[in-house]
Simulated assay, not measured.
Amino acid sequence: MNRGVAHVTSHGMDTDVSILPSNLPIPTDDGACDHLPGAPLPRVLLPSTAGGTVDLSAIARTTVLYIYPISGPTNDDLPDGWDAIPGARGCTPQACAFRDHHRELESLDASVYGLSTQSTAYQMSEIARLHLPFPLLSDELLQFATALRLPHIGVKVQGRTVLKRVTLVCGAGVIRKVFYPVFPPDKNADEVIAWLKANPSRSAS
């Protein structure tokens, strides 16, 4: 299901960021997230597109948090050389996959959030563009990323630090499962669902 992700640029070329190029480099596990399994979530108030703030550490329910670098409506919004960075490309396909599997994730007693360092105002446009049924959280100040020592991509986008793609399954303030590296990003929701089915939370069992 692709809703509202195809656009025509000023160059007259149709660009669809929901389609992953076939020749993307595959990221390798550099060990940057080895410290995360079993780690407590930091008490950070993250601005939410649903309004107010969210403290992920205070949520008892199973929570799926997919962390992504940047999202934009067309390929022209991506930095030069973006596709050559392993694991960078694919934020829209990943978000759309979690959107399309949202009901199944809810049936598994799991809440879903996306997180990036983009502003809440920008993320609101992403909610509207992609029709996302779950909130996006902004770590624009890098408080959450710094506390968890999350890996970031070594290039800045419009002066902004952007995080590497990693997905966390959390519960009662603790990280239960880490997906890193995430590739291909459009299959991440399937991987999370398979893990949740094999590892039900105590509240769901």
Rank of each mutant, 00 (worst) to 15 (best):
L130K: 10
L46N: 05
P25V: 06
A58V: 00
S18Q: 09
R3A: 14
L142F: 14
Y180N: 01
T74G: 09
L150S: 07
C33I: 02
T146K: 10
L142E: 13
S201K: 06
D29F: 00
P25Q: 02
S71P: 00
D190P: 01
A97S: 14
G171W: 03
G4Y: 14
L137F: 05
Y113L: 11
S22R: 14
K164M: 02
T62R: 15
P200E: 12
H102A: 13
A6T: 15
G51Y: 08
S111W: 07
A128S: 13
D34R: 11
I193L: 14
F183C: 00
A58R: 08
L141H: 14
D109T: 08
D55S: 10
P73H: 12
A97F: 04
G4A: 12
V192I: 12
V157C: 14
Q143H: 13
T49S: 10
V169G: 11
F98H: 05
P79A: 06
I70W: 00
A58H: 00
L168I: 06
W195F: 09
R149I: 04
T146N: 14
S22W: 01
N23P: 01
A50V: 02
G159Q: 09
L45T: 02
D80S: 14
A121C: 02
P181R: 03
K164S: 02
D34V: 05
P42Q: 03
T120Y: 01
P69M: 04
V169P: 09
L46G: 00
L46W: 07
C33S: 01
S125A: 02
D139Y: 03
K156S: 15
F144G: 09
A84Q: 13
D186H: 14
F134L: 03
T63D: 01
G52S: 06
V157Q: 11
H7L: 13
S107Q: 11
P27L: 13
W195G: 05
S48L: 08
V182M: 03
K197V: 08
R176D: 04
A84L: 13
Y66S: 05
S201C: 03
Q118G: 02
D55K: 08
I59C: 10
S138A: 12
L36H: 08
M124R: 13
G171A: 14
G52E: 04
G81V: 02
I19W: 09
S57G: 01
T28C: 03
P200Q: 11
D16T: 05
S125N: 06
S48E: 12
H35W: 08
G159W: 10
A39K: 08
D55L: 01
I67K: 03
T28Q: 13
L108W: 10
